[in-house]
């Protein structure tokens, strides 16, 4: 892979089955969008289930959302938005052959992801401390909930934020991967599609949080 350094200032490395760099780039881009479509459908289906149960049990969901601290969700929203910003500019830096700045932006993005997860960790720990577990493990009498099926709210809360959290971790791993490759000099103004793909993935993770925040923390 290190031989790709020779391309740094020149042209892209085009794989054998592509005719030219444009075809390679556009194929990659379309593949990324198709994959994002599957991500949206996967997350979206839980949102659909959430919408259905929210309509069926509005008071129970209202009771559940009162136990969440919107300040934590708010902080995390700001952190993720900032990380989306640094991710977006890192691609622009690579396209302008400013790799040092790009590496700095990518590192900041990973750091933001870590901050997000730490805040999430404290949020979870606080919930566990209060005995707010999903369905089977919640003791309705002990936490003094009005609705006997309050466990479903926390089922949704943990399922949605948990799956989102896994995506944050995966995203951090992917950004680390493209950062290492940037340090090695594999990306430049003619070849950046893996960074752009990881970036779009990271923005999808942000996008889902943008909806999770009002859904879980504000609306009730």
């Amino acid at each position: 892979m290190s031989t790709d350094n020779t391309h740094a200032a020149g042209t892209a490395h085009v794989a054998h089955h592509f005719k030219d760099a444009t075809q390679q780039y556009e194929s990659g881009k379309q593949g990324i969008w198709l994959f994002m479509m599957t991500e949206l459908l996967m997350f979206g289906a839980i949102f659909v289930a959430f919408a259905i149960y929210h309509r069926l049990y509005p008071e129970m969901f209202a009771e559940g959302s009162k136990t969440l601290d919107w300040k934590m969700g708010f902080t995390n929203t700001l952190v993720l938005i900032f990380s989306s910003f640094t991710m977006a500019i890192s691609i622009a830096f690579i396209q302008k052959n400013e790799q040092k700045k790009a590496i700095f932006a990518l590192a900041t993005t990973i750091l933001c992801g870590a901050v997000f997860m730490v805040i999430k960790y404290f949020e979870y720990m606080h919930k566990f401390h209060l005995g707010l577990f999903p369905g089977n493990f919640i003791d309705v009498a002990k936490i003094g909930a009005e609705h006997a099926n309050i466990g479903m709210y926390f089922g949704f809360y943990y399922a949605m934020t948990g799956l989102h959290g896994i995506h944050v971790l995966v995203g951090m791993g992917l950004i680390t991967w493209v950062m290492i490759r940037t340090i090695r000099g594999e990306f430049h103004s003619q070849y950046w599609i893996p960074v752009e793909g990881v970036g779009i993935f990271w923005h999808i993770v942000d996008l889902i949080w943008i909806f999770l925040f009002p859904l879980l923390y504000l609306v009730g």
């Binding site: 379309q30 969008w33 479509m37 949206l40 949102f47 989306s84 977006a88 923005h203 996008l207």
Partner: peptide, 30 residues
């Protein structure tokens, strides 16, 4: 985020359609 950070604003119609179809089919499911 979608239009500027993910650059769908400058992208081609096929990629826009791919992105949109996810929502169309979720709507159908719902």
């Amino acid at each position: 985020v979608v239009l500027w950070f993910m650059h769908l604003k400058d992208d081609n119609n096929m990629n826009r359609a791919i992105f949109g179809s996810a929502f169309a089919f979720l709507f159908l499911l719902w």
